[in-house]
Nucleic acid binder design. Structure first.
Lengths: 369, 369
DNA sequence: AAAAATTTAGCAACAGCGTTGCGTAATAGG
DNA sequence: CCTATTACGCAACGCTGTTGCTAAATTTTT
């Protein structure tokens, strides 16, 4: 994952990850493709390709005849060489997906969770679900780990659920630790929306710019992808986008403030005016664009996906009206291509990303004098 | 600055920058300090220190007797070994500051700019101001470059002023290029608020977490420091925080939307109700915290600094009221320690950061298939 | 059919990084 | 004066990507 010291083994991992990124983004590739994309010398790429091939992560897939000269060897990622399981833990349901190294979702399953479920009950449900999925093609040995996307607040760095909203038995539960022990798998814990935006970013490859995932589903949340990485904030609490005030004189929200986006949106929905609700959400989205200048907005969440076109139209219109001021201010608006799987799939991809993604150098905490 | 290929020379620059970060954050340091902070071996640190000493960036500063054993050599940064000049270009004024390698502001000077000044007029003013400052101690040879913090919109990557707000002669001006030619110095161009938050981050060192600089000065803007780097957004247009809607039924703003933070705040100020204006700003700040989960909020800008305590109190109170929900949600609120110099000083520090800061590995743009 | 041109692939030697092993210098305490 | 302790750095090493060059595979030309 993150490391501080920069030694030659970092170079190895970094450049290896670059090649994997090429493989994930392109169906096939060859040595020259990687050379152009990375700026490495052909010889260096050869060495990396040899290592990856030996590990079974990529494989030759024919040759390309360039017209004249020796044909180039074409490579491809081996999607089924590694898998990860992603879990989306919601208040009443557990969704599990199986994702391969290429980011494709192979299986998806939803099971109910007991009302006010305990950590133990969740672990049992996870355990059963994983056994079923991992048994499908005997891919236990190729399983990289389990990613959990969950409602917060939680502490991503320490794998701790601080206080899951609306669940009584979840105060300071060291979920990552106990899940790793219980399941015998590496576990990665993150906020649902953060996992979701990771899914979008991973599928789009390294060209994916700053982006937000807007989730409307028992509350309104936002997941952010900024500067090539997920943005979690200082306490893993970024994304409480639904609790930003858009109407100073609006109704009081559960959070105590007045006129939060969430309560205003909720009132419109209750009144049956989906179009108005969508326009309210769109105002919030444009607020985000003004603040963060995003390249992509992705819409998701069960409540939103009940009226996908209404929301898509309202947000697209609002974004367009605002960007009209300048032609260079382009922002794409789209519905999540993964639908309801987006959180679980993203959680799985976070696990794969830890192993095969581009490593970050964590700046050390410089000691004060 | 940013580079793609990760070869051994990257390691050299990276670890060297880590040592510089230690030197900038601590008044003095020794080999063991760096070892602890970076995880490098003592031998590796010795090599880096030898290089930096040869370059004159650090120097020995006595010894520390550990009681028993050979005394440790104490080092310190040589602040006057390198300088950078920072410029804050506003609508009517040009502020120039001289900043040394340690981040200290040595000289600060404000000069008026002609109404609706042209690029040529700005260049002349810059040229004159730089000559004066660089002549002070004959530090031309130690001058790293010029940083310009300016109102947007602009294109940071290409050093282009797209359309400076309220200035007629500034459409698609390649300011970085023409300034480099005219001044014979490396030039770095960035949005004012982004430069400002860089100043705060640089002075606080690597432990500075996610943060925002709130500027109230002929408009309301926000500069963001996220994940250890300045956040500029997809089109260098992040920070238009004043144009986020906080009152759906509010007055129409110049931007075309209704109830923007800026217009609501402006109305309160016009009415002479500074306390109310401060509370409106505070609502916007809490909106940012909900969205981004920041560790620090820094307040600045001429209009705000006319009533510093009023704003500081209002924002602190609002942030505290919101964070009351959870003890782990801590956010510091402070006035900028650099006062009116914050933008210019930050622009200068961006130049120093390009040379002596921790380098980022720019992920290559993976070619589509 | 043979030779030339072209493109790809990889072996071998190399430079530069941090690491490891170990010897040396400088101090305090016995 | 000797020893324990701490700091420092030379030398050899392993690993990275790079450079120089040879070999292989194919099309085009003779």
């Amino acid at each position: 994952m993150t490391r501080v010291t920069a030694d030659v083994t970092f170079l190895r991992g970094y450049n290896q990850a670059l090649v994997m990124a090429v493989g994930r983004t392109n169906r096939t590739f060859e040595r020259a493709t990687v050379v152009e994309a990375t700026g490495l010398t052909p010889q260096a790429v050869s060495k990396v390709i040899a290592r990856l091939t030996a590990d079974g992560l990529i494989r030759p897939a024919g040759v390309r005849r360039p017209g004249i000269g020796k044909p180039a060897v074409v490579y491809e990622l081996v999607p089924d060489s590694r898998y990860a399981i992603g879990a989306h833990v919601a208040r009443r349901t557990l969704r599990l997906v199986l994702v391969d190294l290429a980011g494709a979702v192979h299986h998806s399953a939803v099971s109910p969770l007991p009302r006010d479920f305990t950590p133990e009950q969740l672990l049992d449900a996870l355990s059963a679900g994983i056994d079923t999925m991992a048994g499908i093609g005997d891919l236990r040995s190729r399983l990289t780990g389990l990613g959990i996307g969950m409602i917060g607040p939680l502490d991503h760095a320490n794998g701790l659920v601080r206080d899951a909203h609306g669940l009584r038995h979840w105060h300071d539960v060291p979920l990552r630790e106990i899940a790793e022990k219980h399941l015998g798998l590496p576990v990665h814990l993150d906020k649902d929306v953060t996992a979701g935006i990771t899914a979008e970013a991973w599928r789009h490859g390294a060209t994916f710019g700053d982006a937000a995932l807007i989730m409307v589903e028992s509350g309104i949340g936002g997941g952010f992808w900024l500067g090539g990485a997920a943005h979690r904030g200082a306490h893993t609490n970024a994304g409480e986008f639904g609790h930003t005030v858009v109407d100073l004189t609006g109704p009081r929200c559960v959070c105590g403030r007045h006129g939060c986006l969430e309560i205003v949106h909720h009132r419109a929905t209750e009144a049956g005016d989906t179009a108005h609700a969508a326009r309210v959400l769109a105002v919030g989205v444009v607020n985000l664009l003004q603040t963060l200048d995003l390249a992509h907005v992705v819409l998701a969440g069960a409540d939103l996906l009940r009226h996908p076109q209404t929301y898509l139209a309202a947000v697209t219109e609002a974004v367009g009206a605002d960007a009209r001021r300048a032609d260079w201010l382009s922002t794409t608006v789209a519905l999540s291509s993964l639908g309801a799987d987006v959180i679980a799939a993203g959680a799985a991809m976070q696990v794969l990303d830890q192993h095969y993604g581009i490593p970050e150098l964590a700046h050390p905490l410089i000691v004060g004098s």
